[in-house]
Simulated assay, not measured.
Amino acid sequence: MTSAPLLFLHGYWHGAWCWSEVIARVTAAGRQAAAVDMAGHGLNARRPECLSRRPFDPDAVATEVSPVASVGLDEAAELLVSQIRQVGRGGPVTVVAHSMSGTVLTRAAQQAPELVGHMVYLTAFMPASDVPALAYIQSAENEGELVMPSLRADPAVIGALRFDLASEDAAYRQQLRQALFGDVDPVVADAALGLLSPDAPAGIALGATTLTRSGWGSIPRTYVTCAQDMAVRPAVQRRLIAEADAAFPDNPTSVVALNASHSPFLSVPDQVADIVTKLG
């Protein structure tokens, strides 16, 4: 294989499992590929006791400090750099980041640009220099998103963005599906909800990275927009691209458009696989 290996990094609450349909397709096309867990997620996740304690205490859901509250952008980027180095064996890797993992990719690429041959932001946060992802979450461009209204605790209190994934409230579960899996088959969406981690470390969204022309700004990048996204709204996606291109005009963002929700790896895996396999 002459093309660079592909490394897939999931977003908040997910794990390496979410890339299974895409991985099957890109490997069938002859590309070396691997999916990894982000810090505080997947096999690195820890569940708060309040969500499994019986009788259920809704007050504890809102107040119990998350077991992943200490995880920040520094730790997440350090882990990703080590994963990139392992997958690429020291050579360049094409990294595909979804949603919040975009801010982790940005930090990792700035720290070790020689290890990243191409950056792919799949409806992901691609923050400008010294701007945390939280600023985009709270921006006017993100109006109408459904993630923050679905949280069951104040992230400033518990150190995490917490979902009540065991809730029996049908309206709440439907809101979660619309936030993350709007165009995904309902049966698959319910299965995915069952695999999510309830807590996503707030510290990752609070971190910011100083970008340089010789670091992040030197690496080719592709942004895949998703027109139906209810977590990272299309206006935010456009702002991220515009800011990157304004900061590094000699290295403009290549843009690919999907008519998909926040989770195209589940709704249109063929299209996602086709996009990334065509990259070097």
Rank of each mutant, 00 (worst) to 15 (best):
A133V: 07
L134S: 12
L134G: 08
A135W: 04
A135D: 13
A135I: 00
A135S: 10
A135N: 11
A135K: 10
A135Y: 04
Y136F: 14
Y136A: 09
I137L: 15
Q138E: 15
Q138I: 09
Q138V: 10
S139N: 12
S139I: 08
A140P: 00
A140I: 04
E141L: 04
E141V: 03
E141Y: 10
N142Y: 08
N142S: 06
N142C: 03
E143T: 13
E143K: 10
E143D: 12
E143N: 08
E143S: 13
G144P: 07
G144T: 07
E145C: 10
E145D: 14
E145I: 08
E145V: 11
L146T: 07
V147L: 14
M148L: 15
M148E: 14
M148V: 15
M148F: 14
P149D: 11
S150L: 03
S150K: 03
L151M: 14
R152I: 15
R152L: 02
R152K: 15
R152M: 14
A153N: 09
A153T: 06
D154K: 05
D154P: 13
P155Y: 01
P155S: 00
P155K: 01
A156R: 06
A156L: 08
V157H: 11
V157W: 03
V157M: 09
V157G: 05
I158C: 08
G159M: 07
G159A: 02
G159T: 08
G159F: 05
A160L: 06
A160Q: 12
A160K: 10
L161S: 10
L161P: 01
R162T: 13
R162S: 14
R162V: 13
R162D: 14
F163W: 14
F163I: 07
F163S: 00
F163V: 04
D164R: 08
D164C: 09
L165M: 04
L165P: 01
A166K: 11
A166Q: 15
A166C: 10
A166W: 13
S167L: 02
S167Y: 06
E168T: 15
E168H: 15
D169R: 07
D169T: 07
A171C: 12
Y172E: 05
Y172I: 05
R173D: 01
R173F: 02
R173T: 09
R173V: 09
R173Y: 01
Q174W: 00
Q174P: 00
Q174S: 07
Q174D: 11
Q174L: 07
Q175N: 11
Q175V: 05
Q175T: 10
Q175C: 09
L176A: 02
L176Y: 04
R177P: 01
R177G: 00
R177A: 10
A179K: 00
A179C: 06
A179Q: 00
L180P: 12
L180D: 05
L180I: 15
L180R: 07
F181T: 11
F181W: 10
F181S: 05
G182T: 02
D183F: 06
V184Y: 01
V184M: 01
V184L: 01
D185Q: 03
D185I: 00
D185F: 01
D185R: 00
P186V: 02
P186S: 10
V187S: 12
V187T: 15
A189H: 00
A189M: 02
A189Y: 01
A189F: 01
A191F: 12
A191P: 03
